[in-house]
Design a protein around this nucleic acid. Sequence first.
RNA 1: GGUCUCGUGGCCGAGUGGCUAGGCGGCGGUCUGCAAAACCGUAUACAGCGGUUCGAAUCCGCUCGAGACCUCCA
Length: 496
Amino acid sequence: MENNLFIHNSLTRKKELFEPLSPPHVGMYVCGPTVYGDPHLGHARPAVTFDLVFRYLQHIGYKVRYVRNITDVGHLEGDADAGDDKIGKMARLEQLEPMEVVQYYANRYHEAMGMMNVLHPSIEPHASGHIIEQIGMIRKILDAGFAYERNGSIYFDIEKYNKKHPYGVLSGRKVDELLAYTRELEGQEEKKSSFDFALWKKATPEHIMRWPSPWGEGYPGWHLECSAMGTKYLGEQFDIHGGGMDLLFPHHESEIAQSVAANDKMPVKYWMHNNMITINGQKMGKSLGNAVSLEEFFTGNHPLLEKAYSPMTIRFFILQAHYRGTVDFSNEALQASEKGLRRLLAGLQCLTPLTPRPPVPPLQLERGPGCEVSAACYAAMNDDFNSTVVIAQLFEALRIINAVKEGKEKLPENDMVVLAQTYRTFLVDILGLVPEEQSGKKDEIINGLMGTIIDIRAEARAKKDFATSDQIRDKLLKINIQIKDGKEGASWEMAE
RNA sequence: GGUCUCGUGGCCGAGUGGCUAGGCGGCGGUCUGCAAAACCGUAUACAGCGGUUCGAAUCCGCUCGAGACCUCCA
């Protein structure tokens, strides 16, 4: 497959030409959510980012297997190895089965992602469903001599690993430096070194989520599920591994160590990391207490929000920044996105009447504004998925579309087809931006009623009875219905 | 302390050694009975200081400032 897609590889910190291990197939693994709380804006960012990657890779002809996990085994809350696991704690608090908690929040996550038009991954494995694979991987690591057992727990031996393979290749860390500045944490007395990490933890009597293993009852370590499930579904080596930047160390670093220890191979060719969403310049995070949930965005029910923002607005807001940069949340920025998006989507409506029918096949035309926009969009996407520049190009396309519509500009037929196709393809198929559902709001009865009201108002205006026409307009506006007077009569729209 | 990132016009945000980013807001206009919406046009910028260069906001150095990771985290 020919392309010149460049991807920024966190491993080398450079943009590299994308060459899959076995084209046309691409294997992509992305770290999914830990389902112990409502999805927030931070969850939306990697989901939308890698949805874009998924869509674009498919668009340029790759067959992509996209694996995104659900983390549903007890990861520890609080420092080190002490404390409860998150899901178990939630289960106890709410008197639920742990799997009930998991199911509930997984559903919530899926609902929110669906509203933002995030495609489902090809496989969505649960960590709890892959305990056997994780135990198998621990065995391989033990056999290779890179792990040790202490009181029913298994730890990864970083010092030993580091003698044979460099630990820290992804995050640029050195083991000596890690040693020099490691916090004193409790519950680490079992480990040889403070930065050794658990592959398997023995369950304390009160721990709810537990599975039998050759080393007794316990649960898998935090980093292991991704290594085990990635290997299972994508092989010992695969193309792309994605996730948030905050996972780079120690999570992804440890994944590399585990896979190299078990399989003696670097597991991933291209590592991709999306940046954080900040709020007042600070990272938004559940544990920092400044996360705004997606539900709160959709309803506007949060002190920081001036109004509700639709799922599509949030998607657009995320895509308006490049995935490797931070995005700062603010009402002003969100409202700017909302208005811009509305214009872009309105442009979609103009397209059909402008496009010749039956469509002229886009011949080998290389000139004209449509072709230029198309080339620029592909160039932007090929440059490490630069959705920001794609959007700028779409606004340029929109300007042309409006000019053509008003008869101010005329494009060759072929070029107009290219322009229309480019606009639709990039906006809808690749960026995944679609008009919001108006279902239930704009049904037949309402349309009929509104038609009648608009007719009456038109009559009043014809008679210059502006008192009546203004009254209609203003009263409707109070219930969020906006009358839009145009050259060919009035139309209406539900305001947000 | 270590590793790393960033500092662009009122706000959000691309990009680049010489050629318009874009959006929102502002301003001006078209349309309208008036307005809103829509559409068109337009101004304001590259943290500071020094260096490299014919030329730097873009490369290098320093200063100041912000942030991320080093502990669960998207």
